[in-house]
Simulated assay, not measured.
Amino acid sequence: MEVIAIQKTALDGMKNDLRELLEMTENATRKYTPIFKEEQWLDNQEVCLMMNITKRTLQTYKDKGLLPYSKLNRKNYYKRSDVQALLEAGHPYNTNDNGFTDE
Rank of each mutant, 00 (worst) to 15 (best):
M50S: 03
I35D: 04
R80K: 13
L87S: 15
T60D: 08
N16P: 14
N44Y: 05
T29W: 06
N94I: 09
A89C: 10
V3E: 05
Y61S: 00
A5R: 11
D63V: 04
C48V: 05
I6A: 09
K71I: 08
K37W: 08
D102I: 06
E2I: 14
F36D: 00
A28P: 00
G65C: 09
R74N: 11
F100P: 00
R30F: 09
S70W: 10
F36W: 05
G13D: 04
Q45N: 07
L58V: 02
M51C: 13
M1D: 02
Y32M: 14
P34V: 05
Y77F: 09
Y77Q: 01
F36G: 01
A85S: 06
I53M: 01
F100S: 02
E88W: 12
A89S: 14
E2L: 08
L42G: 00
F100N: 02
R74I: 15
N16A: 14
L87T: 11
T33R: 12
D97L: 13
M51W: 03
Y93L: 04
V83S: 03
P92H: 07
D17L: 06
M50W: 12
N52A: 14
D102L: 11
V47M: 01
L58Q: 01
R19Y: 11
K31F: 08
A89W: 11
N76C: 03
M14G: 05
D17M: 07
K55M: 10
L22W: 12
E88Y: 10
E38Y: 10
M14V: 08
T25I: 09
L86F: 01
Y93K: 15
L67R: 00
Q59N: 05
P92K: 08
L66A: 15
L86S: 00
L87V: 12
P92F: 08
Y78A: 01
L18V: 15
A28G: 02
P68H: 14
P92S: 05
L22I: 11
N96Q: 07
P92E: 10
T25P: 11
N27V: 12
Y93G: 05
T9A: 12
L87I: 06
M14C: 07
R80Y: 14
A10W: 05
F36L: 07
E38P: 02
M14W: 07
E23K: 09
K8W: 08
T54V: 03
L42R: 02
S70E: 04
R19D: 06
L42M: 04
P68G: 04
I6R: 10
S70R: 03
D43H: 09
I35H: 11
V47F: 01
K75V: 11
R19G: 02
D17G: 11
Q45P: 00
M24S: 09
M14T: 11
G90I: 13
C48K: 04
Q40L: 15
L72W: 10
E39L: 09
L11W: 10
L86E: 00
D82I: 06
D97F: 13
L42A: 01
K55V: 08
K31N: 06
M50C: 08
E20H: 12
N94T: 15
E23S: 07
I35N: 04
N94F: 15
D97K: 06
T29F: 15
E23W: 08
Q40S: 12
K62E: 02
M1R: 11
